[in-house]
Computed example of a mutant assay.
Amino acid sequence: MKVRTFTAVLHKDEDLYVAECPEVGTVSQGHTVEEAVANLKEATELYLEEFPLPENGRTLLTTFEATYAA
């Protein structure tokens, strides 16, 4: 068994929180932040059972700013 830290990006969509793991591409949801992250963890673990990540390095994650008309 391997342990690796992943990122959860969340946003609220009406009455649910939507959680996405950008490193893997999995998405899940829940009524609370904790439920959404727990569901995302389960979805990611199930995905990785079928599609393991390659051993060649870690995914880079950064942020950027964009300008748009409000």
Score class of each variant (00 low, 15 high):
1 M>Y: 10
1 M>T: 07
1 M>H: 07
1 M>K: 04
1 M>R: 08
2 K>A: 07
2 K>E: 10
2 K>F: 02
3 V>Y: 02
3 V>S: 09
4 R>S: 11
4 R>H: 08
4 R>N: 12
4 R>W: 00
6 F>D: 00
7 T>Q: 10
8 A>N: 07
10 L>G: 05
11 H>W: 14
11 H>M: 08
13 D>G: 06
13 D>L: 14
13 D>M: 08
14 E>C: 01
14 E>R: 14
16 L>V: 15
16 L>C: 09
16 L>F: 14
16 L>T: 13
17 Y>T: 02
18 V>W: 01
18 V>L: 05
18 V>D: 02
19 A>Y: 02
19 A>C: 08
19 A>K: 02
20 E>V: 15
20 E>R: 13
20 E>G: 00
20 E>M: 10
20 E>P: 00
22 P>A: 04
22 P>H: 07
22 P>G: 04
23 E>G: 10
23 E>T: 05
23 E>L: 08
23 E>C: 03
24 V>F: 09
24 V>L: 08
24 V>G: 01
25 G>M: 14
26 T>D: 02
28 S>H: 01
29 Q>Y: 12
30 G>T: 09
31 H>K: 13
31 H>E: 15
31 H>P: 00
31 H>R: 12
31 H>C: 02
32 T>L: 01
32 T>R: 02
32 T>W: 00
32 T>P: 04
32 T>H: 08
34 E>W: 00
35 E>H: 03
36 A>I: 04
36 A>R: 01
36 A>C: 05
36 A>F: 04
37 V>M: 05
37 V>T: 05
37 V>S: 04
38 A>D: 11
38 A>Q: 10
38 A>W: 00
39 N>D: 14
40 L>T: 04
42 E>Y: 07
42 E>H: 04
42 E>I: 05
42 E>S: 11
43 A>R: 03
43 A>F: 01
43 A>Q: 06
43 A>C: 12
44 T>S: 06
44 T>M: 03
44 T>D: 00
44 T>Q: 01
45 E>M: 10
45 E>T: 00
46 L>W: 00
46 L>Y: 00
47 Y>C: 11
47 Y>N: 09
47 Y>L: 10
49 E>D: 13
50 E>P: 00
50 E>Q: 13
51 F>T: 04
52 P>Q: 12
52 P>L: 11
52 P>S: 11
53 L>Q: 10
53 L>A: 11
53 L>S: 07
54 P>L: 06
54 P>C: 07
54 P>R: 09
55 E>G: 06
55 E>P: 04
55 E>C: 02
56 N>P: 00
57 G>T: 06
58 R>C: 03
59 T>G: 03
59 T>S: 12
59 T>Q: 11
59 T>I: 03
60 L>G: 13
60 L>M: 11
60 L>P: 09
60 L>D: 14
61 L>E: 14
62 T>S: 15
62 T>N: 10
63 T>I: 06
64 F>T: 14
64 F>K: 14
65 E>N: 12
65 E>H: 12
66 A>V: 15
66 A>Y: 13
66 A>C: 04
66 A>N: 10
66 A>R: 15
67 T>L: 12
68 Y>C: 10
68 Y>F: 15
68 Y>G: 09
68 Y>L: 13
69 A>N: 11
70 A>L: 13
70 A>K: 12
